[in-house]
Simulated scan of single mutants.
Amino acid sequence: MLSDIEPLRILQFELARLAGSFVALVPNLVAALVVLVLTWALARYGWRGEARLLRRWHQRPALIAAARTLTRSLIWISGLAVTAVLVFPGMSATNVVAGLGVGSLVVGLAFKDIFENYLAGLLILLRRPMKIGDDILCEGIEGQVERINIRDTYLRRRSGELVLVPNAFIYRNPTTVLTDQPLRRITLELGVAYGTDLEQARSVLCEALEGLSTVDASRKTEVFCLGFGDSSIDFVLRWWTGSTPVEELRSRDEVARAVRRALDTAGIDIPFPQRTLSFLEPVPLEGTHGDQR
Rank of each mutant, 00 (worst) to 15 (best):
S213F: 05
A81F: 01
P7L: 05
V255L: 04
G195L: 13
G46Y: 10
E254L: 02
G211I: 00
G140A: 14
A266S: 01
V106N: 07
A66F: 10
I136Y: 07
P271H: 14
R48D: 14
V204E: 03
I10M: 01
A266T: 05
F22S: 04
T153A: 10
R250M: 12
I114P: 07
F279M: 12
P61I: 02
R72L: 06
R158S: 00
W76I: 07
H289V: 08
V102L: 08
T241P: 08
Q144M: 03
M130E: 00
S78M: 14
V97P: 04
L8T: 10
R202C: 00
R17G: 11
V215I: 02
T153F: 00
E199K: 14
A81M: 15
R275Q: 12
N28C: 05
L226Q: 10
V192E: 01
R128Q: 05
I186N: 11
S203F: 00
L125I: 06
V85E: 01
A193W: 11
L285R: 15
L25C: 02
V102W: 05
G211L: 00
S159M: 10
S232N: 14
A41G: 12
V259H: 06
E286M: 15
S232R: 10
I268V: 00
R260M: 11
I136E: 09
L2G: 08
L70D: 15
G267E: 05
E281P: 08
I170W: 11
G49A: 09
F13E: 09
G20N: 14
C138K: 02
D234P: 05
I233M: 09
I114V: 13
A256L: 05
D291S: 07
R156Q: 12
R44D: 06
